[in-house]
Design a protein around this nucleic acid. Structure first.
Lengths: 185, 185
DNA sequence: CACGATAGTTAAGCTTGCTATACACGGAGC
DNA sequence: GCTCCGTGTATAGCAAGCTTAACTATCGTG
């Protein structure tokens, strides 16, 4: 199991994600402030994210340097075209993931939102788009979609429909972790 | 959009994830070394992960302190019960996510594996279990499942079946980011 | 105009996570 | 005894984030 994972130091690419979790939230804070109030100042961002003004100032300087944040003629904060694209991407990823977890999978709301928030900035655009496509279908009124939703409602904590002998994931049958407790959120 | 996200400093919980990306890989390295060779030494772990022996030694000390790693009667590395559960959880999450992305969604392989590797340690057990349940169904021979797979094959880069007027995700219709380019991996 | 409030910046310092280099210890084998 | 190997430890470094505190700039008001 897990051969391809340890092949090399592929695993280190995690750190090299172009966008950190916190940077993503700075971008989204600007976006949401602007849509809500029409403008965004550093102090507002700091307040929204509950960090000090200094922290916000420095983070925003970073984002300006990367070309994702600019300024109004009034010196209000502004997302550049690229910044906006990134913010939208992450926001959509969040929406897609949280809905998917909560509505399609039926995960408990807090858990669903928590998971989505942690993963939002790590999902590639391609994956997000395709997941969206899948969800649009699964949430439609098409008969197969309804059937799948019914199936999900029968979930009772097990690891999968027990009438199958082979686990399509692991390849073989056998222990499909059905423990109950966890250290993860 | 994205109101619940900025409600409070929920977003900071990302940092408090009980398990860091690299710690997860240390655990999995031990696991895979033991299943492959029957034992695991700090040096082997270092080699597997391509880090210095010193780094491995200190990371392992951390993991021992947390009670996830112990030692053989021969002083070989050993996962404790809890350590093993965590390692298995992350490994399964990886398998589930990568298969889901690649096989169900049809995402390009490298992207699928990359996304999965980044998110593996962040997905809660509940979400993972339910996703597994969904996948087992979607990969089965049931008619609705086959139909869904067919639907996914028609994906062509758009944002969703165009015959729908309302986006079930965003709530409203309108621009459903269909840009082509991205800064994410 | 002066004063005080508000906004933004900057500097110093801390924590965390992760890493590297270099050296010290202990056991196995020649 | 000496040497190699596996291991652990000490020290150092870096990057991301954060805080506090001090400083500057700006603006409205009495």
């Amino acid at each position: 199991m897990s051969k391809e994972m340890n092949d090399a130091s592929h695993w280190r690419e995690f750190e090299k994600n172009p966008l950190s979790h916190s940077m993503a939230h700075y971008l989204m804070a600007i976006d949401s402030l602007r849509t809500e109030f029409g403008y965004a100042r550093a102090t507002d961002v700091a307040e929204t994210l509950e960090v000090s003004r200094g922290a916000a100032s420095m983070a925003l300087a970073q984002l300006k340097k990367r070309g994702w944040v600019g300024e109004d003629h009034n010196r209000f904060l502004l997302l550049t075209e690229e910044g906006e694209r990134i913010a939208n991407l992450v926001e959509h990823n969040y929406l897609i993931l949280s809905k998917f977890f909560e509505v399609v999978l039926g995960v408990e709301k807090d858990t669903a939102l928590g998971d989505a928030c942690k993963m939002e900035h790590l999902m590639s655009m391609e994956t997000g788009q395709r997941l969206l496509w899948l969800m649009k279908y699964l949430l439609s009124d098409e008969k197969p979609a309804v059937k799948v939703r019914e199936c999900m409602e029968e979930y009772n904590g097990g690891c999968g429909p027990q009438d199958q002998e082979e686990c399509p994931i692991c390849g073989s049958s056998g222990e499909c972790l059905a423990e109950s407790d966890t250290t993860q959120t």
